[in-house]
Amino acid sequence: MNARDAILGRLRGAAPDAAQAAALLVAPERPAVDESALEAEFLARLALPSVSASHDAIDTIADLPAAIARYLDAQGEAPTLCLPPDPRLDPCDWRGFTLHDVAAPAEVAALAIARRGIAETGSLIFETSPAAPMLPNFLALHHIVLLATRDIAPYLEDAPLPGTQPRAHYWITGVSGTTDIEGTYVRGAHGPRFLHVILLRG
């Protein structure tokens, strides 16, 4: 008998009633979120020491390059950026930037567009696609994220993508950190040391 049959042979039983599994999810305990003030709730979580992201806001997507230039300048970094091949960025004028779409091992800054922001935790939700590579968001020292305010949702239950799944669906809640040496927190363990969210309010 192969391992699959041997294992499943010992585990077979009646299939669960779908209602049983669903019943386990009724009224889950979770931190309270004021759903009438989602942006404020999201920004409050983003500012927590555990997330420690900075933020800015713009009215139209055309304002994005200026906002990124402002941020990089304030950080003392050159206007060099790894940009995803996403058509939503077409209205942007990147003059003054050095752009590339494949991240270098020591990438300074990468931009990504979040599908959702989650107020409960200050999380940013992403999926991979031909227009959204994953690696730059983990290699860059500065991870810059564009998020439309209308895409902020209250709870983590709002994060999953319904339907067919992409290769990776990922939630980012802060910067790469470690407490592996004596429990002391250090930012920028392997991935980004800085997370900067640009809210698109228009």
Binding site: P133, L135, R167, T173, G177
Partner: peptide, 24 residues
């Protein structure tokens, strides 16, 4: 585990890279 509301990186991997994905 750590007293955080959520870990910094929570990733769900479903299958290998799709056609035309840039990485994976």
């Amino acid at each position: 585990a750590t007293g955080a509301a959520l870990t910094q990186y929570t990733t769900f991997y479903t299958g290998p890279k799709r056609a035309h994905d840039r990485d994976g």
